[in-house]
Simulated assay, not measured.
Amino acid sequence: MSTLFIADLHLCPQEPAITAGFMGFLQRDAIHADALYILGDLFEAWTGDDDPEPLHNEIAAALKALQQAGLPCYFIHGNRDFLLGERFARASGMQLLPEETVLELYGRHILLLHGDTLCTDDQTYQQFRRKVRNPLIQKLFLALPLRWRLKIATKMRARSQQANQCKPEAIMDVNPQAVKQAMLHHGVHWMIHGHTHRPAMHRLDLNNSQAHRVVLGAWHVEGSMIKVSADAVELIPFPF
C-alpha cells in the first residue's frame, strides 16, 4: 500500500527520452500504487486544451488507461502548465486539485503544492504569477488563436530563461518563513512540493515540534518520485 508523487517532468516533443521514462514509470511503478499525484509542470508548456499536439493525446491516453485500471490520478497546476483545463482532465482521467491541498494519508496530514508560491524572495516572479493567474487574463489569452498563443508562450519562455540566468540561486529557492507559514496555516507537519528542482528531505522546527518538507526532483536525466506508505516517506530517484 503506497501513494506516489511526481512533478517537473516538463514533457515536450523535443525530449522523447523523458516521455519514454514517464511511460515506463506508469507501467512499472504507478500501476501498483493506491494513487498518483502529479504536482505540476507535467508539461514544459501549455497554451490551451485545444492544442492538437500529438504528445498531449499520447499522455492523456496513458493516464486514462491507468484510471480505467483502477488507479486514481490527481493534478496540481505548475507554473508551466497552469492553463491545463477540464477538457484535458476529462481526456486523461485526472482530477484537478486546488493549488494548496491537504491530504490525509496513512496517518499523516500532508500539504501538497507545486512550490512556486513558496519562492517569495523572487518578487519579480511573484508579480508575474499574480498577473498570469488572473482569471480574466487567462480568459483573454485563451480566446486568442492558437498560433498566437504558441508564439507568445515561446517568447515568454525565452524571457524567463534569460531572466533566471541573472538571478541569484538563493532567491529561486523557497523562503523558510513562507514554508512555515503555509504549514501552520494548514495545520500540518508534512509538506511535499516540486518546482525548485532541488530534491531533498528537509527537517524543520515548527512550534517546537519536528516537521518535514520533501522536495521532488525534475526529470532531466533521471526520474524522481516520492513514495508514501504507512511505514515511510521515501524520495526515490530512478533511471528512465
Rank of each mutant, 00 (worst) to 15 (best):
N134H: 14
R203G: 13
V228L: 04
E86I: 05
L204Y: 09
D49K: 01
E104F: 10
S209V: 14
A153E: 10
M172E: 03
H32D: 12
V228P: 06
E234W: 10
T120C: 11
F22G: 00
Q127V: 14
K180F: 01
F25K: 02
D122T: 14
L216D: 12
L113K: 11
Y74I: 12
E86R: 10
L216Y: 12
L146P: 03
I137C: 13
R108W: 08
R149L: 02
E100N: 12
D49T: 08
Q162L: 10
E104W: 07
I226P: 11
L26K: 00
Q165G: 02
G40V: 11
V214G: 06
M172Q: 08
C119G: 11
Q14F: 01
C12G: 01
F25N: 03
H56E: 06
T196C: 06
T117A: 15
A153H: 02
A17D: 09
M183Y: 07
V179C: 05
F128C: 15
R147W: 09
M225V: 05
N164Q: 10
S92G: 09
K155F: 08
H186I: 05
G107Q: 00
G115L: 08
D34W: 00
M191E: 05
S224E: 06
K151H: 04
D51F: 04
H220V: 15
D51M: 03
Q95D: 08
I76M: 06
S224Y: 11
G21N: 02
I226L: 10
K155R: 08
M1V: 04
M94K: 00
R159Q: 14
A158K: 05
R133S: 06
S209I: 07
V188G: 04
H212N: 13
D116A: 11
D116N: 12
A7C: 07
L39Y: 02
L84D: 04
A30F: 00
A163S: 14
L103W: 14
M94D: 06
A45S: 02
N134F: 09
L66E: 00
F238V: 06
D50A: 03
Y125D: 14
E53R: 01
A30N: 05
D122M: 11
P199A: 09
H56M: 13
T124N: 15
E234R: 15
K167N: 03
A91R: 03
A153G: 04
Q123I: 15
I110F: 05
H212W: 14
I236Y: 06
A61N: 14
A178Y: 00
K139I: 08
R90E: 11
V228H: 12
F128V: 11
A17I: 09
N207R: 13
W190L: 04
D173Q: 02
L11K: 03
K131F: 15
F128R: 13
Q138G: 12
T47E: 05
T124Q: 15
A178K: 02
L150I: 08
A170W: 05
M94A: 06
V188Q: 00
E58P: 05
K64W: 00
T117I: 14
A200H: 12
T124E: 15
A69P: 05
I110M: 03
V132K: 05
F43V: 01
A91F: 08
Q123Y: 15
R213D: 12
L83W: 07
W46A: 02
A35E: 03
V233C: 11
G107R: 09
D231W: 06
G93K: 00
D29H: 13
S160N: 00
G107K: 01
D49H: 02
I192P: 04
P16S: 06
D231V: 09
E99M: 13
L63H: 02
L150K: 13
P168D: 08
W190N: 01
